[in-house]
Computed example of a mutant assay.
Amino acid sequence: MTQTQNSNRTVRWGIIGAAQIARKNWKAIRMSGNSVVAAVASRDVTRAEAFIHDCSIEVPPVVVGEDGTATLMRPEALGDYQELLDRDDIDAVYIALPTTVRKQWVIAAAKAGKHVLCEKPIAVHADDATEMIAACDEAGVTFMDGVMFDHSARLPAMKHSLADTQQFGKLRRIQSHFSFCADDSFESGNIRANADLEPHGCLGDLGWYCIRLSLWAADDRMPVAVSGRSISQYDGGSVPSEFQAELKFDDDLTAGFFCSFRCVNQQTATFSGDLGYITLDDFVLPFVDAEAKWQCHTHDLQIDNCRWNFGRHTQAQSVWEHAAGEPDSQEVQMIRSFSECVLNGSPDRRASEIAMKTQRVLDALRRSDVEDGKWTSVS
């Protein structure tokens, strides 16, 4: 099916799945300046109606005309995903469904000529992801996963810090940690602990970001081998609830991460060079602020006979960027840049390539886990 024709400069979005994260993207679409929510679909139309009602109270949906006039526009609630895809007033879809059903609806969206923003992890296996992306390529539509920090102004600025050969030196180690402490009802009541819906557990929900950050720091190069182990599991031992991983790259660069549903909320990363190191305290969800920050460290140890001084030398860096819900925040930048691809008719190939690389690393880590952490090549 050919792509939906849109003669104006506003991308008309359909949201498939009324997940909590979709509420954040509802606001991001509203704040983007080039997008509007046209419809929301859930398995139960009453749930779609409730989603629209609740989001509209906080963030009323509007469409802005060429003369700058804003008009209230209430999206339509639907109880069928295919019905949304068949609509002529939808250009792009945000798919917030469980991992095990994403393949079906990504491929259906591509066949309907809709551009696809997909929650992560994008698939159960890399083979499924390959089919999904191939369907989007064949249809000439953009495929992107919903990693918001990819679109932050902080990452390009941090690359300058990593490239500082005088203060940082050569990158040798990447270490990240992403966790939150789930409550007692999580294992029995949350889909992220259910093998039939989210088989990758914390590795797919949290580790996806750690993998992505490691690939970013390595300039999108793939590791040559990985080792991963589940520390604890849900659903009879099949769903990781805590996971640790190691990645080896081809130039002695290594990366490691830990992700968990059992530890306090932590989103930290360290990039170690041979001269200095960089720390980041909030790499997934920035702390509430109007700046996104990181720290560069070049501490030195001075030893002279009985005198031992470990000198602190830390320089704070930042970019002006709101944490969330503002035109410059990372989730709004994600929607805006995605929509620009739609409006310009130029699919973002890097977006699908990096999503596929992330999936391949995740797959290799699951294979390693089955073999008790054996070093495994990334195919």
Results as ranks from 00 to 15, higher is better:
Thr71Ile: 15
Met222Gly: 03
Gly146Arg: 13
Thr130Asn: 13
Ser379Phe: 14
Val239Ser: 03
Gly256Cys: 14
Ile29His: 12
Arg172Asp: 05
Lys170Leu: 12
Lys103Leu: 00
Ala22Asp: 05
Ala292Pro: 00
Asp86Met: 04
Val319Pro: 07
Gln20Lys: 14
Asp127Leu: 15
Val37Ala: 10
Arg154Pro: 07
Ala22Leu: 04
Gln315Ala: 13
Phe287Ala: 15
Gln333Ala: 11
Ala123His: 00
Asp91Pro: 12
Pro121Met: 09
Leu84Ser: 01
Met222Asp: 11
Trp208Met: 01
Tyr234Glu: 02
Arg229Pro: 08
Gln244Ala: 15
Met158Leu: 15
Asp220His: 06
Ile122Gln: 04
Thr99Pro: 01
Leu72Thr: 14
Ala193Leu: 01
Cys210Ala: 13
Gly65Lys: 10
Val11Thr: 13
Lys293Phe: 06
Tyr209Asn: 14
Val40Trp: 08
Phe258Ile: 14
Gly79Asn: 02
Leu97Ala: 02
Val101Asn: 05
Gly207Arg: 12
Thr142Ser: 13
Gly207Asn: 08
Arg172Tyr: 01
Ala182Asn: 08
Ala245Lys: 04
Ala218Ser: 08
Ser272Glu: 14
Glu331His: 07
Phe51Glu: 03
Asp251Ala: 03
Asp128Lys: 02
Met222Ser: 12
Phe51Cys: 02
Ser329Thr: 15
Pro156Gln: 07
Cys118Asn: 15
Ala108Pro: 09
Glu66Asn: 08
Gly237Asn: 07
Ala269Val: 07
Pro199Phe: 03
Glu198Val: 01
Arg221Lys: 13
Asp251Leu: 12
Ser42Pro: 08
Asp86Gly: 15
Pro75Leu: 06
Asn34Leu: 06
Glu76Thr: 15
Asn8Leu: 10
Trp320Pro: 03
Gly256Gln: 09
Leu162Trp: 01
Asn190Leu: 01
Val264Asn: 14
Val332Phe: 02
Pro98Tyr: 00
Leu253Pro: 07
Arg87Met: 05
Trp308Lys: 09
Val224His: 04
Asp363Thr: 06
Arg47Cys: 03
Glu321Thr: 02
Asp372Gly: 03
Thr100Val: 15
Glu58Tyr: 00
Arg366Asn: 10
Arg307Cys: 15
Phe143Ile: 07
Phe249Lys: 04
Ala22Cys: 10
His322Val: 10
Ser241Met: 09
Lys293Gln: 12
Asp164Leu: 01
Val378Cys: 12
Asp145Phe: 00
Cys181Pro: 07
Ile57Pro: 01
Asp251Lys: 05
Ser272Lys: 14
Gly236Ser: 05
Gln333Asp: 01
Asp235Gln: 05
Val45Gly: 10
Pro98Val: 10
Glu353Lys: 11
Ala70Thr: 11
Cys210Lys: 03
Ala355Gly: 07
Gly325Met: 04
Val342Ala: 08
Leu280Trp: 11
Gly373Ala: 09
Gly140Glu: 01
Gly65Phe: 07
Arg312Lys: 12
Ala153Asp: 11
Val342Trp: 03
Leu247Lys: 05
Ile15Glu: 08
Ser176Pro: 04
Gly169Leu: 02
